[in-house]
């Protein structure tokens, strides 16, 4: 009986050790709303493949050319699966809602 008790203790210690060996990470999901407007849904869906929407909302208000450059970078450099037509929709949306009027 005493022996069994020691074995149980040993198993618990080993289990505890194994637990300490592992560390987990769950990054919370923070809800970020993009401004409502034409193209919002496509922008949200396509951009979210790689990153959360705050990669858009934190940026300084930018010109249409700057947003177009950013969309092109996502497609050409990072291979985002965005068609020409979708790229135009997204660029127009970003320029209209996160633009500086230029």
């Amino acid at each position: 009986m005493k022996r069994l008790f020691i074995i149980i203790i040993a198993i618990c210690v080993a289990a505890g050790f194994a637990f300490a060996q592992e560390k987990q990470l769950t990054v919370p999901v923070v809800k970020i709303e993009l401004t409502a407007g034409p193209g919002q849904e496509q922008t949200s869906t396509l951009c979210n493949i790689c990153h959360s929407a705050d990669y858009i909302t934190m940026q300084p208000k930018s010109s249409k050319a700057t947003w177009a450059g950013s969309v092109t970078k996502m497609r050409k450099v990072f291979g985002a699966p965005i068609s020409d037509a979708e790229a135009e929709t997204i660029t127009n949306y970003l320029s209209a809602n996160y633009g500086n009027g230029k």
Partner: peptide
Amino acid sequence: PRMVRFPEKTDMILLTNRPP
């Protein structure tokens, strides 16, 4: 600014969520 508390971190200023 939006403050968040992620695993093992204190209240931090959120710039972006994913990647954080």
